[in-house]
Design a binder for these strands. Structure first.
Lengths: 364, 364
DNA sequence: TAATAATTTGCAATCGTTTGTATTTTTCCC
DNA sequence: GGGAAAAATACAAACGATTGCAAATTATTA
């Protein structure tokens, strides 16, 4: 089934420039330094530099001529030299705060959707995105990595359990912003969704459907699930439903453990008719486990997810879920970071969170 | 529901270093140049440089002393200067070759899983990943971007319809490798799955189930779907089933158009009892559309997906699909690129492709 | 037309490393 | 202890751009 083509491919030995230089109207060798371009143009290096940068000091006519020559001779500015001189790279590092303990993997969908949103927002600002996702045991590891010195600012996605370390990091005075929740005693700027409201909405939705024994699936040692749990309790209290401790299960965001957790509950004969899950993956995994056990969803157990990942609407029954506006989140993260880079002081930002009720193939 | 906290956060003005410098055992100001460290250590800059680089020229004792002092005084090497001097960044750019026409978005799951796999493989090699995903109309745009000058090599995910431009790019002699299919007249190295086999396996599976009228959903103007379609035809031919032109539908990888396409087929009263889809998203979207129309999956229409994204196994009915080993793919892409950076010549690599048959909740 | 102002260009210093080579220090051996 | 070899360190020249300031050119005005 596998086969190996033996087609050989040319390799990039920097010195052996192929004679047939492409992407250049002329056949002249590729210019590698401003100096060479300056000579061709008959001006000084500084003039070339200013011309290419669009500096108004330079006469329009000479500027045009230089730009044209640069294109003709296929000149590309040396970014490494430029970055060095300016001490700036136009690169932002994004650190995914994986839950190391649970070996949450980068393919976790929330991270990835957020990454896409940030990448879009950054490229609109003419910044590039450096992905730093080696499991971050300690935020300070980032400080000692190439990532740190190679970027103009850092976006942390999630706080993990590293609130304290993030505070330390903030003291380094590098532009940074964190996607996360509003923890007290915080020295860094956060952008995040309102997790209390999210947990509240999800729970209330189930309560309104008449469910009383509602499982909460999420690791309340993590800041975000913890706040969602608060919302859960608030909703219960409001309806006068007493909280049953057995119904809170610490599952990581990632999916595989959720079905085990459900099976555990079933085995222990703990009865429940609803479930608030801290991610759509947990929810889908739970639904699969429930279905396997012969329970009907939503008739026997109604399930609410969190995140509204693209697939939530395509599963069947399609998933009612809490949506954090990820695209907007990415945009605001970037905006706050840019403000810091420009030396401004920035405030936190809490995004609207909403419940997406789906009923296309379910009856709830 | 949305609220704005007014907590202010300190901003990174490079000059105003906070007095309480964290992550440093001493309270001395953060060292910014080797020169300063050299002075403290009472040696020359070159010795510091060599010591920190672990150069054996330096005496073990002095080396230890310098490393210690560096840690104590919280010295961080200036990466920009280093990159400049070495003309190397240890950064690899990954270009997602989005299908611009269909506005395929970065959140497309295949891209994202691949991205994760590559990120893992790169960080194992001590490289960072620069994400370049602004819709690439022409590959040569990359050449004129900061991305190009800021990376040591480039990985293109997919070929789009830019085979020719990729050839031009290859002539630039920058280390590059492409995830894609084995097109003829190719000057660049590819790593890819065997798409013909993939299409063949999927189709044969349905044929073996007794299906004869099998829809092929995928844009055969794109290289990969085209080859899968070849496999589809091959399987049909082998079973002596005649190909019906109406059963091939050009849908982009992304999901939203697939349900429309299904609805179109139904409306035109074109009968079919099976579907080979070029992505799991297409498949899930198709399944949703079929279910909406009152058809049963898989009883009335059996569906096979492509990619085996994480959620394929959690949908119900869970999805039979063709798996490309993405993790392995990422690893091999990186390996080939590293080889090129080291000046080696590399051969293409075609990965095994396999059919994942799932039947947990379906009857097929 | 000459003096001055405004515009355009060039000079030269600088950014913080790395590394080839020269120099100093240490070690070793007779 | 003196000389040569080996080991350790220092010197200084890159790397390729940007930018303050000086110099040269052109335009303006009296």
């Amino acid at each position: 089934m596998a086969k190996d083509s033996s087609k050989k491919t040319k390799t990039g030995s920097a010195k052996t420039v192929s004679p047939k230089t492409v992407a250049s109207k002329s056949s002249s060798p590729r210019l590698t330094k401003m100096e060479q371009l300056a000579e061709i143009a008959g001006v000084s290096v500084s003039t070339v530099s200013r011309a290419l940068a669009g500096n108004p000091l330079i006469n329009q006519k000479t500027r045009g001529r230089i730009v044209e020559l640069a294109a003709k001779h296929n000149y590309q500015i040396n970014e490494k030299a430029r970055n060095f001189r300016l001490q700036k790279t136009n690169v932002i590092a994004v650190v995914l705060m994986l839950d190391v303990k649970s070996e949450q993997h980068i393919s976790d969908m929330f991270f990835l959707e957020m990454l896409g949103a940030i990448a879009d927002a950054l490229s609109a600002q003419n910044y590039d995105l450096l992905l730093a996702h080696s499991p971050v045991g300690n935020v300070m590891d980032v400080y000692n990595s190439r990532t740190f010195g190679q970027s103009d600012g850092i976006i942390f996605i999630g706080q993990g359990n590293q609130h304290k370390q993030l505070n330390e990091f903030a003291a380094l005075n590098k532009p940074m912003v964190v996607w996360g929740s509003n923890l007290p005693n915080r020295d860094y700027c956060i952008v995040g969704a309102d997790n209390v409201v999210g947990g509240y909405l999800a729970t209330k939705h189930l309560l309104n459907l008449g469910r009383k024994e509602i499982v909460f699936m999420g690791d309340i040692n993590m800041p975000e699930p913890k706040q969602r749990f608060e919302g859960y309790l608030k909703a219960l209290k409001e309806k006068g439903v007493k909280f049953n401790k057995q119904l809170q299960v610490d599952v990581p965001f990632e999916m595989s453990h959720a079905s085990e957790a459900i099976n555990d509950l079933l085995q222990q004969k703990i009865h429940f008719d609803g479930a608030v899950c801290c991610s759509d993956l947990i929810a889908l995994s739970a639904i699969a486990a429930l279905t396997e056990s012969g329970l009907r969803v939503p008739e026997d157990v109604a399930v609410v997810g969190y995140d509204d990942i693209a697939l939530a609407s395509y599963s069947s029954p399609s998933l009612t879920t809490v949506r954090q506006n990820i695209v907007q989140g990415g945009r605001i993260l970037v905006q706050k970071l840019m403000a810091q880079i420009n030396g401004d002081t920035v405030a936190d930002s809490v995004l609207k969170t909403e419940l997406i009720v789906r009923r296309s193939s379910g009856a709830w």
